[in-house]
Design a binder for these strands. Sequence first.
DNA 1: ACGAACCATGAAATGTCCTTGCGAAGTGTG
DNA 2: CACACTTCGCAAGGACATTTCATGGTTCGT
Lengths: 156, 156
Amino acid sequence: MDKLDTIDVAILRTLQEDGRISNANLAEKVGLSASACSRRLDILEKSGVIRGYHARLSNKALDYTMTAIVHISLSGQFEKTLSEFEAAVKRCPNVLVCYLMSGEYDYILRVAAKDLQDYERIHKEWLSALPHVVRINSAFALREVIDRPNIDVDKR
Amino acid sequence: MDKLDTIDVAILRTLQEDGRISNANLAEKVGLSASACSRRLDILEKSGVIRGYHARLSNKALDYTMTAIVHISLSGQFEKTLSEFEAAVKRCPNVLVCYLMSGEYDYILRVAAKDLQDYERIHKEWLSALPHVVRINSAFALREVIDRPNIDVDKR
DNA sequence: ACGAACCATGAAATGTCCTTGCGAAGTGTG
DNA sequence: CACACTTCGCAAGGACATTTCATGGTTCGT
């Protein structure tokens, strides 16, 4: 993808807000004909600027009301240690986010659980079983203040 | 929404993976006629189980390659203190996630930046300006190991 | 300046899709 | 059994997506 012009950004911004808008409505919003809009969208998808479309589900409706932030330290920073840990953590379905970090802890995880009892199970079955871990620190989210899927494209 | 049956879960799982699939293809995948599928989808959307559809953009393509995790402590836990802080943090477009937490820090933020210089600007213009803050701790993500939009619906 | 190559566009056409109405089949209850 | 209730599939009409094609604008090199 060479570069994004004003219309591309408008398309991205619109699809960020409503990923299921029809091509016809999208075209009208960004001031293009349907055909031109369809072609540009095709390019944006194929070039990788748009990585996919996803339904955002209500965790509440799915009974996942609890979010835990878990800080983890490993016994070393060797590449083998890291990759073994990462392979294991990827297998846990309750881990939604995992970053290798600079700073005090090596990894930060966001874990979804149904309730405290469910988290206890996850901690026992998954987190405790992760290799090379020397320290785990769990904290629980009391309230979700912000949860944006992406940064607003306007601000790029 | 009363409860989700097997077909509902199949619909949700499919839309989580491909939020822009046509109703006809979706119907075929879950083993329903297009009309029945369209009606069920309508119910799932209106009842709030599906909170929206969003295009997932390439942060790389948008030049947002840097992720910072910011821990923040406030001077108190009074409701007024919290709500003033939250109102302010919501205005910063670079803050993608913000949780009120139990534990050592009061809030955890995920912040998107273009590079270290951009983060310095965000820190100066936004984070330092947040009210009631007594401690800020920034750590940077070296690698994104996992980034799932939702928990896999199968595992509920 | 001129023409060729290139690119993005809008209009039109065609095939597909979405939604609504309708009747039928299944389920639970009095 | 009879009734209410729900969900289904089918069909039809209108909306939509995508391809084709001709046009206008821009960028080159001569």
